[in-house]
Nucleic acid binder design. Structure first.
Lengths: 341, 341
DNA sequence: TATATTTGCTTAATCGTTTAAACAAAAGTA
DNA sequence: TACTTTTGTTTAAACGATTAAGCAAATATA
């Protein structure tokens, strides 16, 4: 039934009895082609329903007009929104994006990079999996000579552009807020210390306590994988302490949700007994009861800037990337889970 | 810093003093190439860190080994999970996928199809945007001679493969369950009638009522865009009725969440005053209180089958697709919002 | 009028790979 | 021994576009 009668520039050239070179130039609006010919070419191209073969032009020009995006997961509002905004920024310039997800797996992330390089993408925008420590596979991208732009989860060592929020300062904003609500023993269920963003949040937490002359109690600083289940577990540990905290700052919304469930089950009043703050502003923070105070990570801006950053590199043939950080101020969305007054 | 010193088969050929054809065949394990040569080629390829140029081979062979996926949104658990399983099924066969999102916009969906065809994908797996009524852009895919496989939101008129759950029967299962809980006036906040899956759910709802000898009250059957906000609005309409329903079956989880919020605000007891059932089994149905009964759509199976279906077509050069439906039984996950006993 | 420049096109090479066709050498068959 | 078949390789043409270089005709300049 289906016939692959794809029209090529040769077909157009034959109809008009001109060379394929003339057709190609006419379609690219070359100044050395007469208006008359251009008009005729465009007309015939439309009549024959000509669709340029991307593979051929990409092969010849060395530009695929494809950008690879790697995210840990697409089913988070943050990443989905960043992707959407990257797309918006690149589509206008004729680029299309290939989305891949690592599912937080180091191995999958390597496979994704290989697949993207294989597809000859012109650049990669990535946020790293939690598991990722070894960066050798990212060096492959640099070796391929295409720009790499990281966001949210990046690494200083990679020496490439990075876009993210100010995690260190976010912790300050959160602790400031909790202190203002009258909290004196603020616990922190943080992410993996080795992941830069979580480490920054931890440092911010420690320094903010100091700023407010609150003692740092090592028992109140806990490392977690930030899953909902682990949030429950780590909160239970905190409840088992002789001297319970009166506030918990959790470095991820899913874990914060686990905390919320546990506290509700044990009839511990939120925020009066224990105030709760999450991170990420996932939609469900606004759906549960009480609604969870959280941090908006500006997915819109991050996507937009990532796209813009790539576009700045695109014409340079001598790629020379250095660590350029684009740090955005995070925004605390105060909701019932921490509002005592 | 970066040098694009890409190794080609020509480089390998030069090292070994053989032709590029021999190298190409050796790398493809052609039976007419001696083991000795193959071994040597593989060795040199590795030494020079040879990476095949996908564009060149795709251009020559006419196969890009890329599959396009179009979904309304990636930030839903259902679609994200389907994508993951499509990927898994195709990766093993050397295919990579390009994910695009339509954001429920007809115009974006058209742009996505154009972009995918432009990239010379070997096939497209799609779930349609809510807005989509005109199918002309899908005909483009057929005209390109590549297989099109639809899932969840498809259209009979397209005459291509379809994978989804049995929406009609799902309504039966839900109504059966609600009747069993003692509900007598069951309302249905459904999706757009013109969208096939929502239409099937409506038909199932009507027939199931009949089966249980319950009267069909037109006031209790409402069309909605199934957003959280619209769920609230439509529920308020139901509450304004003289004779209120004692159960609401909502065709989407987000709308069901809106319903839940409204009922809680008005201190209407769930499930005792009004029982609630959603659709889609989004993670938050298990996070809110009370937890929402919902329908699991088997994203795992859908993705797996979509991939398998494509692979069955891939070698046929005379593509002849017909409407082949793959209908899965849905599973009702009963939670507190509808459990009276 | 003679020369230089511009205009508008063609020719042919090229991107990196695949593959049909050709062919020599080795091995098998009668 | 003479012919056929198999083995292992090469040659060269593609895939569909882009683009440097070339060239004739038209136009501008001196």
């Amino acid at each position: 039934m289906a016939k692959k009668n794809k029209t090529t520039i040769k077909d157009i050239a034959n109809v008009l009895n001109i060379s394929t070179a003339a057709v190609s130039k006419a379609l690219h609006n070359d100044s050395r082609i007469s208006e008359k010919t251009k008009k005729a070419v465009r007309q015939v191209a439309e009549n024959l329903n000509y669709q340029p073969n991307h593979l051929a032009s990409a092969l010849r020009s060395g530009k695929s007009k494809l950008i690879g995006v790697i995210v840990p997961k697409t089913n988070s509002n943050f990443f989905s929104s960043v992707i959407h905004n990257i797309e918006e920024g690149l589509n206008t310039e004729g680029y299309n994006i290939i989305i891949t997800q690592s599912n937080e797996s180091y191995k999958k992330e390597c496979a994704n990079i290989d697949a993207l390089l294989f597809t000859q993408v012109d650049g990669i925008i990535a946020s790293m999996a939690n598991e990722t420590v070894d960066l050798a596979h990212y060096e492959k991208i640099k070796a391929a000579g295409i720009p790499l732009i990281t966001f949210d989860r990046g690494e200083n060592d990679l020496n490439v552009d990075y876009i993210g929020i100010d995690d260190y300062n976010s912790s300050h904003i959160i602790v400031d807020h909790l202190v203002e609500q009258g909290c004196k023993r603020i616990a922190h269920i943080g992410g993996f210390k080795r992941t830069r963003i979580y480490n920054n949040r931890i440092r911010g937490y420690i320094d903010a306590l100091k700023k407010h002359n609150l003692p740092l109690d090592e028992e109140l600083l806990i490392e977690s994988n930030l899953s909902k289940e682990d949030g429950r577990l780590k909160m239970q540990d905190l409840l088992n302490l002789e001297d319970r905290p009166d506030a918990v700052y959790v470095a991820g919304d899913y874990a914060a949700l686990g905390v919320l469930e546990l506290l509700k089950e044990q009839n511990i009043s939120i925020p009066d007994d224990i105030a709760l703050v999450g991170f990420g502003n996932e939609p469900f923070t606004d759906m549960v009861s009480p609604k969870i105070t959280s941090v908006n990570q500006h997915s819109y801006e991050i996507g937009r800037i990532a796209a813009k950053t790539f576009l700045e590199y695109k014409d340079q043939d001598q790629l020379n990337q250095t660590l350029k950080k684009n740090i955005l101020e995070a925004e605390l969305i105060v909701r019932a889970s921490s509002k005592r007054k």
